[in-house]
Design a protein around this nucleic acid. Structure first.
Lengths: 343, 343
DNA sequence: GCTAGCATTGCATCCGTATGCACGCAACGC
DNA sequence: GCGTTGCGTGCATACGGATGCAATGCTAGC
């Protein structure tokens, strides 16, 4: 069974700058200079070299280049499963690509796996890191020591000098609560996210504080895992728990849209309630699905596009000037009208 | 403005194997061998070296290692925006991580950008490529020449020897059509995907063929872009177009779930129709959202988990043995019952 | 005509790790 | 006691491109 290759026993050795140099009749350094923007080469030589490059199909070896320049042109992106807009990864990827950076993707099941990941990241000598997960403090410190710029998305470390791009969850939550309170609701339910999620606690804590501030104490709490199924289950639990003692909450605040969709479906399909007639449901994030007609959620939309751009800008700036200090850029979420709440 | 570092003027030079060697009182090669599984080192020496490694926090430089071993331990993953399960990227990432490979992510807006991407991929000397987009034939050929293993997901090149992991779209579509035909429907609508999508045409072509085979000619075609909004618009167009001439189709086959959700919402919320009372809607993919109670779509679920595993296995096998021939592994989709169609 | 000045170019070296080779040494068999 | 393994170790080199330095050639200025 012979391999049907045109050139049978070609060793498949990659074309190097030496090959190009030989063909163009110049030295290897000339080739390198011809391909470097600031390189000092005569037009004639450059032309000969470029011709050779085209003939051989030469592409510089980024690995070798990284070794000598000490820049890999790679950015590590760390994301977790839930709790995150999948589109954000895509945006990040494109934004970095547009700036000549490549993306090394790390997907965590549990935020706890971070240990292993930080090792890999360091081994590959990435130029920078974008994290949409919470990293252990010592890892943040480690990256600082290594002089590897790090930008968080939607996380802050109050006592560490870190760079962050955040949506103002508290402010967004206040918008929601105020509208609902103004609507005359007095009995509230809250479906919070995973216990270790900073995003969830920021949102939920502020909601509770604001409700209490408005003199409202009738608040039922349930917990979900940021996904549809757990949101649905949470509202069902809420109904079971309250059925005997008191009536179901009039309005349910969910820590994210995914759970809000689940809660809304629980109300309509599991409990046979009308939304927003019998119960109002609001979310947070501004997911695409939340705006689908079947849900039409009242929610707070995070400006993901702008946040991604900001994160990328921030990181790139720190690649060019590592001395830049810590910075946090806060983005306001926008209130999204919908028919999932009686306002 | 002094930097508030513990060690003020530390040059931030990375720890190398020479540093470890010096501390352990051995040669650099001993360090390298101590860290290589098959390395020939005495237990005593290894212990001293590992102690030094721990003290200095040494991690081998993967870039330098790649240069010498000619393996980068990086896999390029090329995905497009639409038409793709976002979770698949996450699955791929984790599956490769579990096998010690790192993922270099490339996200394409248009499948046409592939030109640029293939260049980047080659420059980074990735060990392999997984593509969930259609690549130009010359790029496929190029990767073959470079001996870079390539596995496609849901694409095939009938006349090129390529590796693929595919869902059997035609078979899945037949399951749908047969059930609908058995249900007595005679007037059909089909919402197809983008014109350049192979996945869409495989599904739609088979649907049309099967319907014709069953003696059904009353088929209205509309086109969407694989996203929710275009699916919704497509069904509305279908209603407008058919309102005068003939009645709306009794059943609408959508080329993917996302559009099916849009179509379903169009029927219920834009046209005031009952689903499945007035019209049945079916999709394809088995998206998470499709199973949400508000939609509860009849669809074909692609075994994404298994497909990803297969793709990863296939690629890894080809890293170890580049001589392996082209292979296509076909996966059957499973019929998902739901309430979006009257069956 | 001579030299300063600039643009090109090549040489040599470096980045950090892996590995072929040779050498030293201890154990072993005869 | 000596040759033969075989293990453990260090030396030297290779991977492929970037870059400081010196050498070259050329032009301009006097």
């Amino acid at each position: 069974m012979r391999e049907p290759h045109a050139k049978p026993a070609e060793p498949a050795r990659a074309v190097t700058s030496y090959d190009v140099a030989a063909l163009a009749g110049v030295s290897q350094s000339a080739v390198s200079r011809a391909l470097t923007p600031g390189g000092s080469v005569s037009d004639a030589t450059r032309a000969r070299i470029m011709a050779a490059v085209a003939t051989l199909g030469y592409r510089p070896n980024a690995i070798a280049r990284s070794l000598i320049t000490q820049r890999s042109n790679m950015i590590a992106i760390i994301v977790a499963n839930l709790d995150f807009h999948p589109e954000m990864t895509a945006h990040l990827s494109r934004a970095f690509a547009a700036r000549g950076q490549h993306v090394l993707l790390f997907t965590l099941d549990q935020e706890a796996e971070a240990d292993h990941v930080i090792d890999q990241i360091w081994q590959y000598r990435v130029d920078g890191v974008v994290a949409a997960v919470t990293l252990p403090r010592q890892h943040v410190a480690l990256l600082r020591e290594r002089r590897t710029p790090l930008v968080f998305i939607n996380r802050t470390y109050p006592d560490l000098p870190t760079n962050s791009v955040c949506c103002d969850h508290a402010a967004g939550e206040r918008l929601l609560v105020d509208r609902l309170v103004a609507g005359g609701f007095t009995r509230f339910g809250i479906i919070q996210g995973p216990p270790d999620s900073a995003v969830s606690s920021q949102r939920v804590d502020e909601a509770v504080r604001r409700l209490r501030g408005a003199g409202i104490d009738d608040i039922v709490l349930e917990r979900g895992m940021f996904d549809y199924a757990s949101g649905r289950a949470a509202l069902n639990r809420m109904a079971t728990a309250t059925a005997t003692a008191r009536a179901l909450p009039q309005a349910v605040l969910c820590a994210n849209d995914m759970m809000a969709c689940g809660a809304l479906d629980a109300a309509r399909h599991d409990l046979g309630l009308a939304v927003p007639g019998d119960v109002s449901v609001v979310g947070f994030d501004g997911l695409a699905q939340a705006s689908w007609a079947a849900y039409d959620l009242v929610t707070i939309r995070q400006p993901t596009r702008a946040m991604v751009e900001a994160a990328v800008d921030m990181l790139i700036a720190r690649l060019d000037d590592p001395a830049l200090g810590a910075e946090t850029r806060m983005f306001a979420g926008t209130f999204v009208e919908g028919t999932s709440a009686r306002l």
